[in-house]
Structure formats: structure tokens, C-alpha cells
């Protein structure tokens, strides 16, 4: 691959642009509130862990992380398990209305969450799922299931059809072929799809906030509580923000070679 002159400089500047705001957040999370408000310091002069301590010891804070993880994981499992057979069907067969169905799925990936916030609220209240992780997990399926189908379809199409035919000749039944042969073959694809479901469910707030009230409030919604009569608790807000970046930063390492392919919906 051939690059352009001055590429090190351009890359360096761009990475600094990306990292500087994040650094500022991390920096603030280690400062005392007095230091944040009174002086402008480029690094914490009196470093403190008080904000992190508060989050890890106060249940109303750390339960937010657990709530978020709960619906995110639930959503990932639902999305992948329904998307796998569909991805296989779209990749291997032609059937009545397949193109329309595919377009319909894609159109849901693109639907604005704001449109669905209120009807979802009514729907899940009516069936008694409001304020449970299931409500958010199901609501997030609207954009994650299409995404998972798209990504997995790309990976299934990469598996040669001869493998299916050989397996069926060897007397494998369809479910057995699916679980024993196909799933291991596209394991990396499943990993990538799971990562993207995890990610889009993790970063979404509007639906998650609308569909929960007390029991299952996501961390992102709890963060808004730092605004109080006594003013803003900036340090605490920053610490909570830093902690929401960590899960993404951890999983990203495992899929670094597939990131672009996933964002292109498996179409690169």
C-alpha cells in the first residue's frame, strides 16, 4: 500500500486530535472538584481516586453499569441467534420476497430512534416489560438484528457451497450441519457481529433511557444525576464517563483487523 508524503505528520496530528478530548476527561476524573473549578492544570496536581471510589462503593452508581451490561449482553445473544439462520438463508437461497425483505431489514437499521421512543414506551408498558432489561434488549434489536444479518451474510457467503453439499452427502441433518460445521467455520464472523451488536447497544441512549425508570436505569442515564442544586460534580461525571469508555476499548483490541469490514456491513 502506498501512502502520501507527510503521512506521519498527518497521522500524528489526527491522533492527537482524537486523543486530546479523551485525555482531558481522564485528567479531570483524577482531580478534586476544587482543583477543577479553581485552576487550569494540564495534569492533576493533587491526584485523587475519590470519584472512582464513590462509583464503586455507591450501589446506585455501579448498578447502572450492571444494568447496561445486562441488556447489552441480552441483546447481543438474541440478535446473533436469530440472525444466523437468516444470514444462511439469504446467502444460499433465493425465495419469495427475499430482496424486499432484505431492504425492509436495512430500512430498520436506518430508522431514527426518536421516532420509536414513544410507541416503544406504550408497547412495552402494555405488555408489562417496561423497566426490565428485556424491553431495552428487544428495542435495540430493531437496529442490531439487521446489522447482524448483514455482517453474517457476508461471512457465510465466504464459505464455499461445496462444504454444505459434502456434509449433506455424509448424512448430516440440517441442524447438525449448522452447529457442527457452519458455526465453527464462521466463528470469526460471529465474533465480529457480536462485537458490533455489543457496541451499538452500548452507545445508544435515547431508547435505553425512555424504556427504563428505576430498576434498570442504564449508566448513561445515571450520569445526568451529577447536576444538582450544589452545582455540577464535574469530577464524578468525568470518572463515570471514563468508565463507560473502558469496555469498548477492551473489546476493540480483539476485532481490530475486522473493524472496517464490520462497519461496511461485511461488504468490503
Amino acid at each position: 500500500m502506498h501512502s502520501i508524503p507527510g503521512r506521519r505528520l498527518i497521522m500524528g496530528l489526527f491522533l492527537i486530535f482524537l486523543l486530546l478530548p479523551i485525555y482531558w476527561l481522564v485528567n479531570m476524573s483524577f482531580k478534586t472538584n476544587a482543583e477543577i473549578v479553581s485552576t487550569m492544570t494540564l495534569w492533576p496536581h493533587t491526584p485523587t481516586l475519590q470519584h472512582y471510589k464513590r462509583i464503586f462503593t455507591d450501589e446506585s452508581w455501579y448498578s447502572g453499569y450492571i444494568n447496561s451490561l445486562e441488556y447489552v449482553i441480552l441483546n447481543t445473544i438474541i440478535s446473533i441467534s436469530v440472525a444466523l439462520p437468516a444470514a444462511y438463508a439469504f446467502s444460499r437461497y433465493r425465495f419469495l420476497g427475499d430482496k424486499h425483505l432484505f431492504f425492509w431489514l436495512l430500512s430498520n437499521r436506518m430508522a431514527p430512534a426518536a421516532v420509536y421512543a414513544l410507541p416503544f414506551f406504550n408497547l412495552y408498558s402494555a405488555i408489562g416489560l417496561f423497566d426490565t432489561p428485556w424491553a431495552v434488549a428487544l428495542a435495540h434489536c430493531i437496529f442490531n438484528v439487521p446489522l447482524a444479518v448483514w455482517i453474517l451474510e457476508g461471512f457465510v457467503s465466504g464459505v464455499p457451497r461445496e462444504i454444505d453439499e459434502t456434509a449433506f452427502l455424509d448424512g448430516y441433518s440440517f441442524p447438525r450441519f449448522f452447529i457442527r460445521i457452519l458455526v465453527p467455520l464462521i466463528a470469526s464472523g460471529i465474533g465480529v457481529a457480536a462485537f458490533f451488536c455489543f457496541m451499538f447497544s452500548w452507545v445508544e441512549l435515547l431508547l435505553a433511557r425512555t424504556l427504563t425508570s428505576v430498576q434498570t436505569k442504564p449508566i448513561a442515564a445515571i450520569m445526568t444525576r451529577t447536576v444538582s442544586a450544589a452545582g455540577m460534580d464535574w469530577g464524578l461525571l468525568a470518572a463515570a464517563g471514563v468508565l463507560t469508555i473502558i469496555p469498548g476499548a477492551l473489546v476493540i483490541w480483539f476485532v481490530r483487523n475486522y473493524i472496517a469490514r464490520g462497519f461496511a456491513l461485511g461488504r468490503v
Binding site: 482524537l18 479523551i22 441512549l205 448513561a220 450520569m223 469508555i245 469498548g248 476499548a249 476493540i252 483490541w253
Partner: peptide, 17 residues
């Protein structure tokens, strides 16, 4: 990894940052 980092931050935290 650094490039992908902003993509994985919850949207309201992006706002907060």
C-alpha cells in the same frame, strides 16, 4: 485501535466530553 476509540464511546459521553 486509536482510530476506532471514538466510535465506541456512548453517544451521551461523547457529548459530555
Amino acid at each position: 485501535v486509536t482510530l476506532a476509540l471514538p466510535l465506541l464511546i456512548p453517544w451521551n459521553v461523547v457529548g459530555t466530553i
